[in-house]
Design a protein around this nucleic acid. Structure first.
Lengths: 125, 125
DNA sequence: ATACAGCTTGACGTTAACGTCAACGTAAGA
DNA sequence: TCTTACGTTGACGTTAACGTCAAGCTGTAT
């Protein structure tokens, strides 16, 4: 259960390049172990990658994703930090809810477009 | 009801810059009337802008947004075109549905993070 | 021992979506 | 008429998120 992965294993599993993974590390989103100079990734790193990639699909920047990921692991935090974090989390939630609404709008509009298109196709036949 | 707008009126209304609006035109997303050299925008252009900006918030590229906008107005199309269009629309809808699911995942995770954070805050007090 | 696959760190190139600046035209009010 | 505000077209600059070499180290199978 404590298997480690090489960078190219990760790349294959997540369908990204090794360059991308190293880039995420540069940006402070990952910090794998090192065996000498070589990077070794564990399951926590994999979770982080899942979150990063989901964030990307949702249009978040890497900086935003890093913020969110940090939310999942409130480290040795004092009350002030925690309050700030709570605020951030709530903001992010509001943003995502809004995003959800916009998606629904677009979905219903596309549905109408689809119907129009189908009708036009039927008439053309 | 057929009022026209200047570029800076639009910019103000939509909270974007005139540069942005001209850029969208360069990219083929808008094609306003001209009164001499001056651009004049009508309500259809405003609708397009709404769609473009929503697309942006949903993480679509401008090219993708242009495709979608074109879906709303199937011009003189033949059957082949329409079928292609239908396929595209359905793909886009699947993509957006998936996006909606991911948002819900992230929302529930953030909810947990929020609770953890709140608990930690209570303990710290 | 060597060949080769896989890892490393730079360093520079690329694309999208604008920002910024320059140089110019134009319409309307003082 | 002259300024002032707003419009125009280039052209170059910028940031994020990687891609693409180059040059070198490393472990292992032959």
């Amino acid at each position: 259960m404590d298997r480690r992965f090489t960078i190219s294993e990760l790349a294959k599993d997540f369908q990204i390049t090794t360059r991308t993974i190293r880039f995420y590390e540069e940006k402070g989103l990952l910090s794998p172990e090192r065996s000498g100079t070589v990077r070794l990734y564990d399951s926590k790193d994999r979770v982080r990658l899942v979150l990063i990639l989901r964030g990307k699909r949702l249009g978040l920047t890497l900086d935003e994703s890093r913020d969110i990921i940090d939310m999942y692991e409130p480290d040795s935090a004092n009350a002030k930090q925690l309050k700030k974090l709570l605020t951030k989390i709530r903001e992010k939630r509001e943003f995502l809810k809004q995003q959800g609404k916009e998606i629904n709008k677009m979905l219903s509009e596309l549905k109408m477009a689809e119907q129009n298109c189908a009708v036009a196709l039927a008439n053309a036949a």
